[in-house]
Nucleic acid binder design. Sequence first.
DNA 1: GTACATGCAAAGGGTTTGCAAACGG
DNA 2: CCGTTTGCAAACCCTTTGCATGTAC
Lengths: 137, 137
Amino acid sequence: MAEETGIEKLCRERNLRLTGQRRTVARVLSDSADHPDVDTVYRRASRIDPHISIATVYRTLKLFEDANVLTRHDFGGGRARYEEAGEHHDHLIDVETGAVKEFYDAELEEMKSRIAERLGFELVDHRLELYGRRRRS
Amino acid sequence: MAEETGIEKLCRERNLRLTGQRRTVARVLSDSADHPDVDTVYRRASRIDPHISIATVYRTLKLFEDANVLTRHDFGGGRARYEEAGEHHDHLIDVETGAVKEFYDAELEEMKSRIAERLGFELVDHRLELYGRRRRS
DNA sequence: GTACATGCAAAGGGTTTGCAAACGG
DNA sequence: CCGTTTGCAAACCCTTTGCATGTAC
């Protein structure tokens, strides 16, 4: 219960004031294997702290995102989704359930920067999303 | 002036009622080499028809999108951007200007479906966006 | 003519913000 | 203690929608 999450550690390193609400949001994201949207984070956080407000959840997620503690994604549907920052990877979204699978392919990564270079650009960021339907065995 | 755009042709083929406003929006998109957002389409359309309303622009863009006459993109920033539908291609967005470059790489395309397959999915859609900074020569 | 499209303004959904009260270091 | 953070509600931005009017076919 009193264990510190990696996110909390990062907050101290970056001199972010560690309030109860921030600890709560940090814990929710640390415990989430999916890529929850803001409302989901809010609902999960509310189970830990019933008084937390959605405004604080929004503010905290943005704070964490700016501090590179979390990564924000936009998989369509007009709502942001978050995950703990870490190694770069791409996403495959199940069009039927919205579930997200992460994957990494070195060859693909290399191809991305090669293409940007060919077009005369230095690759700053990139995103690849595959939308698929689970194959019936 | 009386020339028919490809989009208008598609409208007739798909039995979409060809109103003045739809012709206007079609013309704007046919004449746009960039990937305008809704407000930009509205402003350009207003120069042709000063009485067109933003609601009609929204409705028409959605109609055209559903009819596969236009493609909608979300390059971040929370506003949709449109382009005339055509061959599939990916996008490189200049992070400094927002300008969009289109590109196509067959090897990359093949890799996408190969990866989806490997993960047990049938590829339904995909999107790759590279965000880059123009290299100073 | 008649079903469908338009304009207007109001409503919606996600996100941000001003302000006074609460709180972390 | 003092500056930062929070909760609340109102504001914001983009987009959609209800309704009366206008229009393509």
